[in-house]
Nucleic acid binder design. Structure first.
Length: 290
DNA sequence: CAAGTGCCTTTATC
DNA sequence: AGATAAAGGCACT
């Protein structure tokens, strides 16, 4: 099955899957193999054609956010020459609409880890606690359910390479399993309230919360700030902050909670309601330069 | 090849 | 409030 993209729907599959927002896709030949919502499927792109197998068209459209009017979004976020450069270079990069549970655990695991290491952890977690499915000659694994992870021992999670994150994953899984905790329900409440709920979970700080909000809970205004974004802010957006603040940011290795808040608030105010898209373009651009 | 540095940070403690 | 340290271990140079 194929989707005709056309000029009104710019999309670049490689950018979307390689920009670091998702960790469980593998390229074999020209096809990308992955699992979303417990369904293994494969996709490939040839110019304006997006071809897929083993999945319905609507799922593909939804997962890759082909419903976003990317042209309009890019126009709205292009506020200066720096973001313009990123947008020109990586046009077609789309935020994905990931599963909130998988996204939450992925970013709890992602703290203070490199992307290859994150992929490794999530792969091991899925292989150990997920369900095995197959597509063509490959085995793929669904992401483990909250119940399954809540029942896993911390030492079993440690064995997947999670390190000190194992206890956060275990505790968070237990909380999510509790009656009354509605992770999916956070799609319906506003950004601030959803963020407040997320940061109350073990292992979830403002950065992890913003990633989950942006990549899985429909909050396109979320603006995650990690070390790369901090560098981008210092390099291109320093003039929007006081001299002392900039000096402090340059000197300190890590971001305090209030410093995070300042950078985050700037991003959302400056780029507007699609700030998350701006973040993703700037982030990917910064990483590709080094 | 070994050793050092960095990694899409959060939490605990003072 | 704000500063400080500690927390796996892998990947890259």
């Amino acid at each position: 099955m194929k989707i005709k993209l056309g000029l009104s729907t710019p999309f670049n599959l490689n950018f979307a899957l390689c920009c670091g927002q998702t960790f469980r896709w593998d390229k074999r030949g020209d096809w990308w193999y992955g699992v979303s919502a417990d369904k293994a499927f494969k996709v490939r792109q040839d110019g304006e054609e997006l071809e897929f197998e083993n999945v319905e068209r609507d799922i593909v459209r939804r997962y890759f956010r082909l419903d976003d009017d990317l042209r309009t979004i890019l126009v709205q976020i292009t506020k200066d020459k720096h973001i313009e450069r990123a947008v020109n270079e990586f046009s077609g990069l789309r935020i994905l609409r990931q599963d909130p549970w998988e996204c939450l655990i992925s970013y709890i695991c992602a703290t203070y880890k490199s992307i290859p290491a994150i992929k490794h952890m999530l792969h091991k977690l899925s292989r150990k606690f997920g369900l095995k499915t197959s597509l063509d000659e490959y085995n793929l694994y669904t992401f483990p359910t909250p119940k399954r992870l809540s029942e896993a021992g911390v030492s079993e999670l440690m064995a997947c390479g999670l390190g000190y994150r194992a206890k956060y994953v275990s505790k968070t899984a237990k909380i999510v399993c509790e009656n009354g905790f509605e992770l999916e329900g956070l799609k319906k409440v506003d950004y601030d309230e959803a963020k407040k709920t997320l940061v109350a979970l073990p292992g979830v700080g403002p950065k992890v919360a913003d990633c989950v909000l942006l990549f899985s809970l429909e909050k396109l205004e979320a603006f995650p700030v990690d070390v790369w974004m901090k560098r981008v802010m210092l390099r291109y957006y320093a003039k929007h902050f006081s001299r002392e603040f900039v000096k402090r940011l340059s000197d300190e290795e890590s971001l305090s909670n209030s410093d995070y808040g300042k950078l985050n608030a700037f991003g959302r105010g400056y780029f507007g309601k699609y700030a998350g898209y701006a973040q993703e373009y700037l982030y990917h651009c910064a990483r590709m330069q080094r």
